[in-house]
Design a protein around this nucleic acid. Sequence first.
DNA 1: CATCATAGATAGTTGCGCTATCGGATAGCG
DNA 2: CGCTATCCGATAGCGCAACTATCTATGATG
Lengths: 230, 230
Amino acid sequence: MRVGELSRRTGVPVPTIKYYVREGLLPAGELSSPNQAHYDEAHVRRLRLIRALLEVGGLKVAAIAEVLGAMDDPGRPLHKVLGAAADRLGTEGAADDDAEAEAAGDVVQRLIARRGWHSHEADPAAKDLARALAALSRVGHGAFFELLEEYADAAEVVARADLAYVDRQGPVEELVESVVIGTVLGEAVFSALRRLAHVDASARVFGGVEEERVEPEGSAAGEGSAEREA
Amino acid sequence: MRVGELSRRTGVPVPTIKYYVREGLLPAGELSSPNQAHYDEAHVRRLRLIRALLEVGGLKVAAIAEVLGAMDDPGRPLHKVLGAAADRLGTEGAADDDAEAEAAGDVVQRLIARRGWHSHEADPAAKDLARALAALSRVGHGAFFELLEEYADAAEVVARADLAYVDRQGPVEELVESVVIGTVLGEAVFSALRRLAHVDASARVFGGVEEERVEPEGSAAGEGSAEREA
DNA sequence: CATCATAGATAGTTGCGCTATCGGATAGCG
DNA sequence: CGCTATCCGATAGCGCAACTATCTATGATG
């Protein structure tokens, strides 16, 4: 098929397809003449994958290029491809370097050791975790750390489910793709599920019970900023 | 304190602080004269919260303004504030309207019913979930749906832990803040944990051998994107 | 053969999160 | 009182990311 049909079938505008080709997300079509290229089902699949990673996964175009690059790289140890892909799925930005960051890093290392996880210090996921924990500390919610074990339990449940899913995929290429998709879209799925469960749990605990405690009329003290002395 | 000190204490540049004030993320300082404003600890706290939501949570400035607006809104039923805040924590963009989207919506509604969750159809989280599932279908991974129950189990575990945490916070304002922080930063925490567990499980199943991945290499300068594959 | 689509190249647009600069006011010190 | 550092508020500009539009030469197609 030609680019117009590819566009119609995926809903992606032609100029955008060209842009993705330029950025290395999508292989160029096969040229039959200097201005005629043909695309196939692989392009359709790839394009849908790109849009999914972009729109649902929230990945940046450059990150997608890297992930797909690792995916496509032939003749490479499987676990390396998986690792390379996984390493590109995290957050951007450098970690800051204050007391909170250091303490958070310690907590993460202890957690990893305690769980017996196969991970090293440089793992981007570990860095992301430390960053998040440091941010929690900085906003005065260091107590959140107490939930870490429960979070980790749940994370293991999900990770095991993911692996079981991936494990029953067929050939290697699909397997790698499954990991990428599972990691990125699975995160979106879990995030939404968590918020759903949150709303429900919140409704059970607070809804209607605390409702009456708000005073009517503008007797609210300070305005604008939430300031009160604890 | 004046804006210079606020800047020093939070690491946020003065022009950026002004920008946040303009955007409604941060209340203006109290004017003592036409060109002199004073800031207090509440501003420091708020600023740290903003940076956390921005950098770790990945929220957009406009979304943060909405969330904080709901947080600050006085004299409003607690569960409504919580709901309003939670509703703004999701993804942007409208859902598409194809066969996959419809099927995914069905699956979500059945899941919600089966779980007995208190959720309405318009819940943004439900929409996000449907979007993610539809995307999975489109890339040929509809089989991922089979993991939904396990995912939901894990989500309930996390949600319960969150609620238990929130429940032991004191006054209402802090409680709302806890929900926001727990939801946003908790997501970052879980995401990183999941990837950590993933790497570990993956190594067990596929790696056989644990090899080096991204090498630390170099000093603590900002790392960002390591581009080489040893 | 007339029209349409296409490849490839380059330039422009939009949105976002800042950042720089300017024209006045003070603050605070000697 | 003078002096400098700082501040406020407003406006304009910057840099990046993800497209989008336009142009030319060429080939496809009925």
